[in-house]
Amino acid sequence: MIVFDGVEKRFGDTVVLSDLSFTVAPAEHVTLIGPSGSGKTTILRLLMCLDSVTRGTIRVAGQELTGDEKRSRQVRRRIGMVFQQFNLFPNMTVRGNLIEAPTRVLGLSKDEANARAVELLDLVGLREKIDEHPSRLSGGQQQRVAIARALAMRPDVLLLDEVTSALDPELVAGVLALLRDIGETTDITILCVTHEMGFARDFSHRVMMFDGGRVIEDAPPERLFTAPEQPRTQEFLKAVLGR
């Protein structure tokens, strides 16, 4: 589904990713872990075309992301993203946030988009908030709306960028439960950057450990968390798990 081939990303003189290659299969859940500044978020941003690669190619569903603008737009449309800071549009209600892209981009009618919005708000448990403004919601509620907003585009690929990092501790569990639910009931390919190791462990099929712009270990969670091979991975896990 997703292929990174020899991808390099620099910001000026700083190398963020160097010669990175990996593939993600359809419906696979891959979690990216590693110290801050190791390039995890950059991978999501490259996929979303918020940044562009310095060298190498990225393919999604066989289509190269850069290159022909028109064709890559078709592919990009199948990718959704949820941000650390939610980034809901404060000038629209929850409903407005959810129907904006389906009506404007997918060409759904207002009624269809509305039905879809209601269905998704049911899923995230916020149906009664449909006409509220985002500023009236708690952080956890805002993030659930942001997840619903991304799902409203019926993406094949969902990118989750530290979606619980900005939340108060007591709100984290609700959002993670929702994501687990989505993971189990859909066949969306999910790429996830997180510091929640417990979640990474039972949500993902594969965990990739990043350090210094490279993947230093790539394994199923049960192996990576119990018997990491690389010393850097061992150190990192020890630091974040506090043992």
Binding site: L50, R73, F83, N87, F89, E100, V105, M153
Partner: peptide, 10 residues
Amino acid sequence: GQWEAAAALH
């Protein structure tokens, strides 16, 4: 983030 969210929704 607002620009990026708009971009992420295409």
